[in-house]
């Protein structure tokens, strides 16, 4: 399990906590401050939605949380593990064991069938569910032998969800998961995410432009200019089926 401990990431605790996270991108002579001192606490088992305009720092935060990127300043903890001081191999190990990713453009491997795309993850995970079960969870078992090019956008994104949940991740990080989908298809994908949260206790973080999706969140972080401008707690999260846009 490398240097990443899961202690404290269990139910009731905090999945992630951060103090003063900052991120500066340097391109040539110009500096872009993507994050300007973010403090946050993400409780385990919640659905969290990050809302905000383009360039407000949501994706940067998500990438740092997922171990794809490093902050320039501040500290980030996953449970009791300080992610900010892990080396590259430990971060990879963290992603492999704990994190499921879902992206706007699915990022499926075109040369692998739906089931094989899921197997990419189950091949290396510690305690995965069978690939077929993951596909069954998103309602795509009958399309297991189809290649991505033979699936609709919504189906591809559901394969991506199946791939992300097959390892039984502690966290699901979703960057605009419905961005390329129509509303009906988008809702099916959100239902799959809610189901993972409900049945596997997975903490789900969703980035979106779409304010409607905030209705299903336990907590909503509103981003502006690299900071969390406001946090809203939703006492009665809605079912995805009740959302529309």
């Amino acid at each position: 399990m490398g240097r990443v401990s899961t202690a404290g990431a269990g139910a009731g605790g905090l999945a992630f906590s951060a103090e003063g996270l900052g991120k500066v991108y340097k391109t040539g002579d110009t500096e872009v401050r993507a994050l300007r001192g973010v403090d946050l606490a993400i409780p385990t088992g919640e659905i969290l939605v990050l809302l905000g305009p383009s360039g407000s720092g949501k994706s940067t935060l998500l990438n740092i949380i997922g171990g794809l990127d490093r902050p320039t300043s501040g500290k980030l903890h996953y449970g009791e593990t300080e992610l900010t001081c892990l080396n590259d191999a430990d971060l990879t190990r963290f992603r492999r064991d704990h994190v499921g990713f879902i992206f706007q453009f699915y990022n499926l491997i075109p040369s692998l069938t739906a089931e094989e795309n899921v197997r990419l993850v189950t091949d290396i995970a510690v305690d995965p569910m069978p690939a077929a079960d993951a596909l069954a969870l998103v309602g795509l078992l009958d399309r297991r032998d189809h290649y991505p090019a033979q699936l609709s956008g919504g189906e591809q994104q559901r394969v991506a969800v199946a791939r992300a949940i097959a390892k039984r991740p502690s966290v699901l990080l979703c960057d605009e998961p419905t961005g390329a989908l129509d509303s009906a298809t988008g809702i099916r994908v959100l239902e799959a995410l809610a189901q993972a949260n409900r049945e596997l206790g997975t903490t789900v973080v969703i980035i979106t432009h779409n304010a409607g999706i905030a209705a299903m969140a336990d907590r909503v972080f509103r981003f502006l200019d690299g900071r969390i401008a406001r946090i809203e707690v939703n006492a009665q999260p809605a079912q995805p089926s009740a959302i529309s846009w």
Binding site: G66, L68, D88, A89, T92, R93, R95, R96, D97, V99, F101, N107, I109, P110, S111, L120, V121, I124, A125, R163
Partner: peptide, 13 residues
């Protein structure tokens, strides 16, 4: 693109 995806999924370099 695929290689980056594999890295994201937790494959080592």
């Amino acid at each position: 693109h695929e290689l980056a995806t594999l890295r994201v999924l937790g494959y080592f370099r």
